[in-house]
Nucleic acid binder design. Sequence first.
DNA 1: ATGTTCGTTCGTATTTTATCGAACTATCTA
DNA 2: TAGATAGTTCGATAAAATACGAACGAACAT
Lengths: 98, 98
Amino acid sequence: MPAYDHPDASSIELMPVLRALADPIRLEVVRHLAGVPCANCAALLGDRPKSSMSHHFHVLREAGLVHTEAQGVQHINSLRRADLDARFPGLLDAILKG
Amino acid sequence: MPAYDHPDASSIELMPVLRALADPIRLEVVRHLAGVPCANCAALLGDRPKSSMSHHFHVLREAGLVHTEAQGVQHINSLRRADLDARFPGLLDAILKG
DNA sequence: ATGTTCGTTCGTATTTTATCGAACTATCTA
DNA sequence: TAGATAGTTCGATAAAATACGAACGAACAT
């Protein structure tokens, strides 16, 4: 399994977070993940090719927004809400409401 | 004087706001404006060409983050904090702290 | 009128980001 | 072992954003 490297909570940076959120597909993913404990990638595919979504998940992971963990064949994604709330209080709430 | 068109408060959209913020120079401008009532463009130039900054101000205006008003030769910019707070409560606060 | 200042607009070059198919890897199942 | 499934990685293309000089326009002063 590919070793995902997630930034740890304290090294999540604002600019990558904003860049990650500044894309309609990724924002949609974040919104979806905010409503469920976790989800595999397929659940968020829509009609787009897998490779595109893989790219978006990569961006989200790198920014520290999403945690991905291989679990058997599928990879489970979850929103790093606690980490984000700690680092940028109110940010996620504000964005999820808008 | 060029007629600036600012979106009115209720039609400020999240995605343009996020896109506008997802650039280091523009975030810097927003941060600066958050600390003063208003400022002309020159005050925010740094060492960059005017045309670049004009572009960034355009993006900020279009997104609804900044209000610009010609006042004699210079153009006065201010952060639309009240409008943003009304539309996306907590967003600006979260970003300005980060 | 002329010149100056402040900022915009235009045109182009450069960089970044997104998109998608194809090939690949790992895991599970039959 | 062969086949299926879930995602990633690669490589090419296309689209979007940024950067910057040069020319322009409006407001003001002399």
